[in-house]
Amino acid sequence: MANEEAIKSELTGKFVFLADKIVIKRERRIFADVPQAHFREVFEHAAKKMDFVHLCIITGLDDGDNLLFIYHLSKMDGTTLNLKTTVPKSNPVIKTITDIFPGGVIYERELIDLLGAKVEGIPPGKRYPLPDNWPANQYPLRKDWNPSMLEGKDGRKEEVKNG
């Protein structure tokens, strides 16, 4: 576990506010809570200076009043750093990480479609994964959403009738 401890102490040394926010769950699994204001610098430091060269995935989840995002980063040796950050549902704005990991664009698009996050600076492109005529303000992965909210608002049905 020396390796994990070293990563922990490097992060806490560099970022004081992370002092009691880093948890080593088990071998090769480090979880850290990062305040949204400092998220970008911590993320950039981990990705560029600490050899966390691979973005496994971004998990987004509905945490009551907030949206919680977990960025799962991994090193080539298998150590995983899971950076968590929260934003309020009323203003769910995060910054894009596609400048560091261009491949992460699809995960960010999922957050936009399924959780209603607003990602600043995401490159233009087609939406993913919902259909083009999905009604606005329907975010399926939010806890208060259920399929019955779609009834009568199905864009495609109307289109077929008109077409």
């Binding site: 999922e110 399924l114 994964p129 919902l130 259909p131 399926p140 992965l141 399929p147 019955s148 779609l150 009834e151 199905d154 495609r156 049905k157 289109e159 077929v160 077409g163």
Partner: peptide
């Protein structure tokens, strides 16, 4: 793998061939 619950409320709607083609 995630979403695509269409007409989950059980709406019975048949789409005709022409409609599908136009669509």
């Amino acid at each position: 793998r995630m979403i695509g619950v269409k007409n989950a409320g059980g709406i019975k709607d048949t789409v005709r061939w022409d409609d599908l083609r136009n669509y």
